[in-house]
Design a protein around this nucleic acid. Structure first.
Length: 374
RNA sequence: GGGCGGUUACCGAAGUAGUCAAACGGGGCAGACUGUAAAUCUGCUGGCAUACGCCUUCAGAGGUGCAAAUCCUCUACCGCCCA
């Protein structure tokens, strides 16, 4: 039994015919039931809510971001707190993104070479160079349970030539990341049991042969888990599903699969059905701040239209005395009316953001619970 | 009683003859958000029309002028100053 099989225990006997999987992933800071959704704490905080609240919602792991933490507070302050866990007072596992996505999202102020990515900080204009090695080192200092390799998330649309060239860089960075990772583990004398995990990222844009090449090469290098990246960046919903299907079909069965940045509830459901184990997305938290509230219908997750979305800022809610979701057990739904939440939004009261965030995360986490049960 | 200044769309506020249905804020209405530069961004906000466009507006009434939110006269209201 390989180390990762000890770390990732699948329960094939209760997995459904559909291709969905259930399991337990063991990490330095605890065990996490799969499939799971990670609330996003880019800058060391899930916006508007506290670690206790995140825990109470049932989240077993959160995501944070190397690129952002590198700039603020910087590694030395994180070191003083013995890593991000101590800094933000979260004692469960953390996955950190490498900064690869920022190579994409901050496209206006960056440059990519085989050596690494050069960014201009949007905070103070200074130049930041991120190399695969530096990203790994930073993630050790952060104290990440699951580290992601530095990659380039290809934009959409993108030509075959660009995607191919970009993939070559991503694969080169993946090799260097793995080497550096092993070197540091050795140096730190970390055992197979208490070391963090390192995930590779499958790129290749919308091109099947590039995706296949990415999987083949990454598996050759050997990672603890594999992420599908470069998805939901503007391509159609059908293409997301297609890419996920191609990729999951090729990935090793005994390692976790992580669909990065996805997504809408129904996209998560579909991805779970083809064997994806891990998700993260800004949708529940960001849309909460923008007044969009997710509400379950009576349908099960596998069915169509299993949820509605309320834009609580809409005039029709002005005098709506009902809770946002009568069947939801969150703070918002058990205590307050739609009318009150709308009032909080129109008066710009921070409580509205907090209640909405708790609610949407509750929606997502309960959905994952349901997907683990079925 | 006299002098000066003001009155613009839901609110605040630009505009001082043609390019004005009238900048810009706010508010209102709606939409977007997918590994978070995002409590952000976009559109609409006099009426009718999908639109071309047409119609009615800049305190009120009257005037000058080809043309007025813009100039003149009076009236109303609001400020400030002098008695």
């Amino acid at each position: 039994m390989s180390s990762i099989q000890r770390q990732f225990q699948l329960f094939p006997q209760i997995s459904r015919k559909s291709g969905s999987r259930m399991g337990i992933l063991s990490l330095p800071h605890g065990k996490v039931k799969t499939p799971f959704f990670m609330p996003i704490a880019t800058r060391g905080a899930v916006k508007n809510i506290s670690p206790d609240e995140i825990k109470a919602l049932g989240a077993e792991i959160i995501l944070s971001n190397t690129y952002h933490l590198l700039q603020r507070p910087g590694l030395s302050i994180l070191q003083k707190h013995k890593g991000l866990h101590g800094f933000m007072r979260w004692d469960r596992p953390i996955l950190t993104d490498s900064g690869g996505f920022q190579v994409f999202s901050l496209a206006k102020i960056r440059k990519i070479t085989f050596e690494g990515a050069i960014f201009q900080s949007e905070i103070d204009g200074s130049r930041i160079t991120l190399t695969p090695e530096k990203a790994i080192e930073a993630q050790y200092i952060i104290g990440s349970d699951i580290m992601m390799v530095l990659d380039e998330c290809t934009p959409y649309p993108c030509t075959y030539e660009y995607a191919k060239k970009s993939l070559a860089i991503t694969l080169d960075w993946a090799r260097r990341s793995k080497n550096h990772f092993e070197k540091i583990n050795k140096k730190k004398k970390l055992s197979e049991k208490n070391r963090p995990l390192l995930f590779g990222i499958v790129q290749g844009s919308v091109f099947k042969d590039l995706r296949e090449e990415a999987v083949t090469e990454l598996v050759k290098i050997g990672f603890d888990g594999y992420a599908i990246g470069g998805v939901a960046v503007g391509e159609g919903i059908n293409q997301i599903d297609e890419i996920v299907r191609w990729t999951t079909a090729l990935l090793p069965k005994d390692t976790p699969r992580y669909l990065m940045g996805v997504g809408k509830p129904e996209e998560i459901v579909r991805a779970v059905h083809v064997g994806v184990d891990m998700f993260d997305c800004v949708i529940p938290t960001r849309e909460a701040r923008h007044g969009r509230l997710y509400v379950r219908t009576k349908k099960r997750a596998a069915e169509k239209k299993f949820y509605d979305v309320l834009n609580i800022k809409n005039g029709i809610f002005k005098e709506d005395m009902r809770p946002v979701d009568a069947h939801c057990a969150c703070l918002l739904c058990t205590q307050f009316t739609r009318s009150y939440l709308r009032h909080l939004f129109s008066t710009n009261e921070g409580l509205g953001l907090r209640l909405a965030t708790l609610h949407n995360l509750n929606f997502y986490l309960r959905l994952m619970e349901e997907l683990r049960r079925v």
